[in-house]
């Protein structure tokens, strides 16, 4: 027999005063999405265990001392959640300011939109505010690590580590504001355990990790997502049958991703599938 998922009990929660019914085990974020609420997220990844590090998704749960991260906190029966309360908005605003003042969010999708929506002013900390600015690490021909854009969300580490790739080429090193994503002894990727699967790039929410093609095209000013098509097809290498989404601009493949809900890949690829398209 094929084991069936045990039926999940449904629970009722209130999101901004609106009753929503979600399966037990759902997160507050799931419930918010079910209620049609747009809660911002950065470190949340649909293929990863929530790390709830960025805290932009915080919501107010009635009776709780602190705000709760929607992405990881489980919804409980009878829970009353405010996604748009003054306190939650204020926290999101300051978190966006803290991120915007320390990190280059220029390639983070929706960052500008949220900054405007919450009235965040990253400039308020002055010109001397510490940042993570640093030169991009370009140490191989496949992908680039521009840690000036890194919000330390841990997604790349989790994708490289035990959640998917199990290669463990990178980890968080150091502590506090000085913490960085690093190989051992900050060795270049070419001298690390990296196998260039690009699964870290796939999950990076800010563009800190990007394919060399995209990085170069952005530098040249030729990167134009409005001119790109996305077509999902099957990898041409081994017989596993990984689904590739080809991002094509001017009849050239400029980026390869994989659908996150695909039963074969779950959004992951290997070096050949991700980068081995050069021959066409």
């Amino acid at each position: 027999m094929i084991p069936l998922q045990p039926p999940r009990r449904l629970i009722d929660v209130q999101i901004d005063g609106e009753a929503v019914r979600v399966p037990e085990g759902s997160t507050i974020l799931d419930a918010c999405q079910a209620a049609g609420k747009d809660v911002p997220t950065l470190c949340y990844g649909d293929t990863l265990t929530p790390k709830n590090a960025c805290r932009v998704c915080v919501v107010e749960v009635e009776g709780a001392r602190t705000l709760a991260p929607a992405c990881s906190r489980k919804a409980e029966a009878g829970m009353k959640v405010g996604t748009d309360t003054e306190r939650a908005r204020q926290s999101r605003k300051v978190v966006l300011e803290l991120l915007g003042s320390s990190t280059d969010l220029s390639t983070t999708p929706r960052a500008a939109e949220w900054t405007a929506e919450y009235g965040a002013d990253p400039e308020r900390f002055g010109d001397d505010a510490a940042t993570v600015a640093q030169p991009a690490k370009v140490d191989n021909d496949l992908y680039v690590r521009d840690y000036a854009k890194c919000i330390l969300c841990y997604k790349c580490v989790d994708a490289c580590g035990e959640q998917w790739q199990n290669t463990f080429a990178i980890a968080v090193a150091g502590r506090g504001f000085d913490a960085t994503i690093s190989t051992e002894f900050d060795a270049p990727l070419t001298d690390s355990a990296c196998v260039y699967c690009g699964n870290c790039v796939e999950v990076c929410p800010t563009g800190a990790l990007s394919f060399k093609t995209e990085f170069d095209m952005r530098a040249e000013g030729t990167w134009d997502e409005s001119k790109q098509t996305e077509t999902t097809t099957i990898c041409s290498y081994c017989g596993v049958g990984c689904n590739l989404t080809l991002h094509v601009q001017d009849n050239k493949i400029v980026k390869v991703t994989s659908p996150h809900d695909n039963p074969v890949t779950k959004g992951n690829l290997c070096v050949k599938g991700r980068f081995g398209y050069g021959y066409v």
């Binding site: 709830n52 590090a53 960025c54 805290r55 932009v56 926290s91 300051v94 978190v95 803290l98 991120l99 003042s101 320390s102 900390f125 002055g126 001397d128 505010a129 510490a130 919000i151 330390l152 841990y154 968080v172 150091g174 502590r175 506090g176 504001f177 000085d178 913490a179």
Partner: peptide, 22 residues
């Protein structure tokens, strides 16, 4: 607090730095 923040979450990692700067 800036020295001892583990760096995991944004409010503390960056907030403790901004507090010290202010």
């Amino acid at each position: 607090f800036r020295d001892e923040s583990c760096g995991q979450c944004v409010p503390c990692r960056v907030g403790t730095v901004r507090q010290e700067e202010a």
